[in-house]
Amino acid sequence: MDGEQAVNTMTDVGNRPAARRGVFSRRVSGILEPYYYVSPALVLIVAVMLMPLILGLSYAFRDIRILNPFSGGFVGLAHFQTLMHDSAFLGALVNTAWWTFGSLFFQFTLGLVLALLLNRHFVGRRLVQALVFLPWAVPTFLSGLNWAWMFNPVVGPLPHWMVSLGIMETPFNILSDPDLAMWGPIVANIWFGIPFFAITLLAALQSIPGELYEAASIDGANTRQQFFSITIPFLAPTIAITLMLRTIWIANFADLIVVMTKGGPADSTQIVASYIFTQAFRRLDFGYASAIAAVLLVLLLAYALGVIALRRAMTHADS
């Protein structure tokens, strides 16, 4: 040292811990550490979701009817063969596409518009934000009942408004018209689902650094150019992931349909998820219901993987 006499003002020197307390044990506990944290979630998910899923998939190959004491045997692919010729199922498949993409399109566009509106500062924004997000908190079956009520020409205002707007000749309940019935649950679903998109997109919007817009406006970009050159590219990843997750979620979401139309009239609003429900709990045929569910799961997985592959291909093409 360079001749400097250090003055020690320290009083107690900490206890020197014992040397090498098992190299091995610390290495192992270091590797295991993350698993201590995730184990409760893992146990729960495996026990309450994964095991039932596997059990459920096995039902698809068995004859399981609750009220029939002789059921329970393996039937191989019989359910799937029946399914191929089940016109109600094929109809439900088409309806599912309608229901999903009809709801999704409006939920997304209106959610995006709402997020953009809320992303500007204005008087009363906090209050407005709280109010417009409220539908998300309403129990779905309650909103289903309420919307069914509002579509009813005797007790609801909607048919009368549509007549005044000239969309309808005389007030009638669209929920009982096989051609239009699907729009009932879709409207309810749009109402319920806008907040989800608005919240996620608003969060994404707020994470765009403000300097980007400043830089762009200095470069002479007008509002529209800024929207397409900054906002949309920044939102793209959020949009892609939420659209995908939401598609799957809506395809599985039968509550509103079960409450509002029970799949009717004449199966015109029967989607696959509600069809499963009908098979399982009206006909008590769990084997067949599980077979349908398995097909739906496979279709949704294929859809998800397809979207992911497409995205990957597109980002690779870009770069």
């Binding site: 893992l42 998910i45 994964l50 039932p52 399981i64 997750l245 998820a273 499963i276 769990f286 998800a304």
Partner: peptide, 23 residues
């Protein structure tokens, strides 16, 4: 684990009712 969690979001939950009841 992340994949497992994402897949659980794809279940038609209706299908799990009977097995969960069983368990």
């Amino acid at each position: 684990i992340v994949a497992l969690m994402l897949i659980t979001q794809m279940f038609p939950l209706v299908m799990l009712i009977a097995p969960i009841f069983r368990i």
